[in-house]
Computed example of a mutant assay.
Amino acid sequence: MGRGYNLLFILVTFLVLIAAVAAQGNSGSSRRVGQRPRVGFYGNGCRNVESIVASVVRKHVQSNPANAPGILRMHFHDCFVRGCDGSVLLAGNKTERTAGPNRSLRGFEAIEEAKTRLEAECPGMVSCADILTLAAREAVVLTGGQGWRVPLGRLDGRISQASDVILPGPNDAVDKQKRDFAAKTLNTLDLVTLVGGHTIGTAGCGLVRGRFFNFNGTGQPDPSIDPSFVPLVQASCPQTGDASARVDLDEGSAGSFDTSFLSKVRSSRVVLQSDLVLWNDTETRAIIERFLGLRRPPLRFGTEFGNSMVKMSLIEVKTGSDGEIRRVCSAIN
């Protein structure tokens, strides 16, 4: 009787331990069944998550300032395709990373390094989607922008297909931009605010050269561009030059997160047609004027940018069996 009881006790204890280990291994995803991301999601389970991501992003931006706009752009490209699920981070043949608009993305190494450090500190808890969202905020802060509180608790997606990458384009009309943003639950204020993120970063010469040399086949620059701005861009993007060369989106202030870019939209000194046309639409123009203090009530760009980034970061987030917590950000488990 005693020996049989001991064997039963050992068996039960063993099964309990196995269940505990399994629960621990799945704790990240099981905590997210039906849950929306929220501020403070990780609590004491991974209390250093934000400081770890911040330190890694800081290191990579200091070594290459282009990583700041690169990471911000990567987050946007992630959320507009299959939602904010880190699918843009997956590597491989015909993944989102290989699609044309994503080939110039940068900052992947920062996300992977942050993931490695977090796996060492709190294994299996922090998703790559959450890391990318936090990294985007740090990119803004490191370039002089205002921070915001980031809801956390996303899961990583398992699907990444280049064919899914259909993003707002550099020549889109205002109405198309409004429709594209509305399809992602973002309104016109969000549109203007998030486009204001072009205050940092660059565009490829191949995207903009037509407007400055042969607009709509006329053999002339776009007449709506400030004439004094044309030769500056032509010098940076010669007609027969390298299409992959880069030109600043915010002339003279491409490293500072501020309202300078919106002032350039007003004065027709921006390189993308999709940015320039925001001044021609009554609704978007009024928002720009409020950001610039030209119309009442005024809007604070830093505050509104944080609000719009939070809204964007909640697009189609994965919960429960829809996602996972990757061990590495470039591959599914």
Score class of each variant (00 low, 15 high):
5 Y>W: 13
9 F>G: 06
10 I>T: 10
13 T>M: 09
13 T>Q: 06
14 F>D: 00
15 L>G: 00
16 V>R: 01
21 V>I: 12
23 A>F: 10
28 G>F: 02
28 G>I: 01
34 G>S: 08
34 G>V: 05
35 Q>Y: 05
40 G>P: 15
41 F>R: 02
42 Y>H: 09
54 A>M: 14
55 S>T: 09
57 V>L: 08
62 Q>I: 12
64 N>S: 11
64 N>Q: 04
74 M>N: 03
78 D>T: 01
80 F>G: 09
93 N>E: 13
94 K>S: 10
105 L>H: 13
106 R>F: 14
107 G>Q: 07
115 K>P: 15
117 R>F: 12
118 L>C: 12
118 L>K: 08
125 M>G: 08
127 S>A: 15
131 I>G: 05
132 L>K: 06
133 T>N: 11
136 A>K: 01
137 R>H: 02
138 E>T: 09
140 V>F: 05
143 T>N: 15
146 Q>M: 12
147 G>I: 09
148 W>G: 08
156 D>H: 11
158 R>W: 12
167 L>P: 13
168 P>D: 03
182 A>H: 13
188 T>W: 04
193 T>N: 01
193 T>Y: 01
193 T>V: 03
194 L>T: 00
195 V>N: 02
196 G>Y: 01
198 H>M: 07
203 A>T: 04
206 G>R: 07
208 V>E: 00
209 R>I: 07
210 G>R: 03
228 S>L: 15
231 P>L: 10
237 C>T: 02
238 P>Q: 03
245 A>L: 14
249 L>Q: 14
250 D>H: 13
255 G>Y: 06
259 T>S: 12
268 S>F: 12
286 A>Y: 01
292 L>A: 08
292 L>R: 05
293 G>S: 02
295 R>V: 04
296 R>T: 07
296 R>K: 12
301 F>A: 05
301 F>M: 10
305 F>C: 02
306 G>E: 05
309 M>K: 00
313 S>L: 05
320 G>T: 03
321 S>G: 06
323 G>I: 00
325 I>A: 04
330 S>A: 08
333 N>Q: 11
